[in-house]
Design a protein around this nucleic acid. Structure first.
Length: 505
RNA sequence: GGGCCGCUAGCUCAAGUGGUAGAGCAACGGCCUUUUAAGCCGUUGGUUCCAGGUUCGAGUCCUGGGCGGCUCACCA
């Protein structure tokens, strides 16, 4: 299969040898640039007067050669660095006949070049560097993906993300936006008095969410540790300790299936705010989401697939019950009688195993009937108690808790609640979870005695929220799959079940 | 795991009902002093994902397998 590729690579390898024989190092250690390409374009992109461009002096620039057009004694090429791209003009009679024929013409698209020269405008008006000298900075040994169709193969895009980034402008854009989202989230929270902290990713008791963990082992201590499924219980310990506003932005790990909305490791920002309740966090979330859209995209009207999402606040707020009744068109009796709810769930062909409690039945019905229609940003609030073992009950209805989930584009993007800070109640909730675990629910929460001990030292009234950063980025970049917004998504190892085969390529 | 779809040159894609496997780009050799999908002439490049089967003949049909995508199920 690789005969062609091998031939191309042999040719490229031979060029490297030829350069070395000519005394040209194809991989020199350094090259100092005077400007980035973006700086040059920024400063002179609008300058039309050639004499002004001439007066700007000599520039020393570098980048990857992305295109090459040789016209006999002159050649045009485009260099690209991470700030932008610039055309260069190389003339045989300027760089020397020998150099032009024996060196420059042996260069390939993909090579990194350093160039020195002055600016001018071509006949078509494009800002261009008239090159006095060219230095090879790094030689490619493999051909780049095709230049105008780019790299389409989805698997290659994920496995060889570097090629995706070289070939696909759109992919670069997504990850630039992602980086900005992460920075802006930090700015937003820090500016509101939140302190960024780091809590264990390896936890002896995985807590804070209903999920199955990954297990690892510490040799010296001879104990199993779990990759965290959420930082929640540690963050609330910090609020107990007196850090009233904390957040953590980082990876969580859940040992579950992979889909367009699930990667086994994903990025979540969790934050906790003392003397606030879940309603306050709805306000905060509106502020955060709309700020991200406005400052990064310049608009709060965001296209996602066939939808246009209006991210300008306020967002719709609807209780879980009303959402079921009014949006999901669920018969009222289903919410009142467990038996009716189970019957209804059966009609929807929901797996019997998932229907351990009345609350879970309603939760499942919600996912089926309501979630798929929550296109515009929506807070759904006041959830059944038994699906929310860390959330505080409503003062006027102990069967419900003060919790909301935030949806956009039919995706659950955030989950928040007024934190349960009554240690006695918390212990009971954990005990209920343990019973469910005993009944075979592997995702049920585990008892965490130290967490309860922490609560016994006093957690102030606190609200907490977790936002799925990957999903947020999906929406802000119009990406249909979570793998499009994760640089290196989890994949089966290359080459199938045989796993690692480091020895040979 | 179930269902649907896909896998052809380094890349992007073609090859009515089974009949010699092609194009563009890339590579290689030439020509070319303002191009930008540069152009023109020429050359090279293939185990059509793998293994069986049907057939005079399989990229195409059948069976099994591999890999991937989407979708369903659970979580954020």
């Amino acid at each position: 299969m690789a005969e062609t590729l091998d031939k191309i690579r042999q040719d490229l390898m031979r060029k490297v040898e030829a350069f070395r024989e000519m005394g040209i190092n194809p991989y020199p250690n350094r090259f100092k640039v005077s400007h980035t390409l973006g700086e040059v374009v920024e400063a002179y992109g609008e300058e039309q007067d050639d004499t002004e461009l001439e007066k700007a002096g000599v520039f020393t620039l570098a980048g990857r050669m992305m295109s090459l057009r040789i016209h006999g004694r002159i050649a045009f090429a485009h260099l690209r660095d991470y700030t932008g791209r610039l055309q260069i003009l190389v003339e045989r009679d300027v760089v020397g006949r020998d150099f032009y024929n024996k060196v420059f013409k042996k260069l390939d698209v993909g090579d990194f070049l350093g160039v020195k020269g002055t600016l001018f405008r071509t006949r078509t008006g494009e800002l261009t560097l008239r090159v006095q000298g060219v230095t090879l900075l790094s030689k490619v040994l493999r051909p780049l993906p095709e230049k105008w169709h780019g790299l389409k193969d989805v698997e290659l895009r994920y496995r060889q993300r570097y090629l995706d980034l070289i070939a696909n402008e759109d992919s670069r854009r997504v990850f630039v936006v992602r980086s900005q989202v992460i920075r802006k989230i930090r700015e937003f929270l820090v500016s509101r008095g939140f302190m960024e902290v780091e809590t264990p990713m390896m936890q002896p008791i995985p807590g804070g969410a209903a999920a199955r963990p990954f297990v690892t082992h510490h040799n010296a201590l001879d104990i199993d540790l779990y990759l965290r499924i959420a930082p929640e219980l540690y963050l609330k310990r910090l609020v107990v300790g007196g850090f009233d506003r904390v957040f953590e932005l980082g990876k969580c790990f859940r040992n579950e299936g992979i889909s367009t909305e699930h990667n086994p490791e994903f990025t979540m920002v969790e934050f906790y705010m003392a003397y606030a309740d879940y309603m306050d966090l709805m306000d905060l979330t509106e502020g955060l989401v709309s700020t991200l859209a406005r400052e990064i995209l310049g608009t709060t009207q965001v296209e996602y697939g066939d939808y246009v999402l209006d991210l300008s606040p306020p967002y719709r707020r609807i209780t879980f019950r009303r959402a079921l009744l009014e949006l999901g068109k669920v018969p009222p009796k289903v919410l009142e009688e467990e038996a009716k709810a189970r019957e209804y769930a059966r009609e929807l062909e929901i797996d019997e195993e998932k229907l351990a409690t009345f609350g879970k039945v309603l939760g499942e019905i919600f996912e089926r009937r309501v979630e798929p229609i929550l296109v515009q940003p929506t807070f759904v609030y006041d959830y059944p108690r038994d699906v929310s073992p860390l959330a505080k009950s409503k003062e006027d209805d102990p069967s419900m808790v003060e919790r909301f989930e935030f949806f956009m584009a039919c995706k659950e993007v955030a989950n928040a609640y007024t934190e349960l800070n009554d240690p006695v109640d918390q212990r009971e909730r954990f005990l209920e979870q343990i019973k469910e675990r005993a009944r075979g629910d592997e995702e049920a929460h585990r008892m965490d005695e130290d967490y309860i001990r922490a609560l016994e030292y006093g957690l102030p009234p606190t609200a907490g929220e977790g936002i799925g950063v990957d999903r947020l980025v999906m929406i802000l970049t119009d990406s249909p799959s979570i793998r499009d917004v994760i640089l290196f998504p989890t994949l089966r190892p290359e080459g199938g079940v045989e796993g690692d085969r480091d020895g040979k390529a």
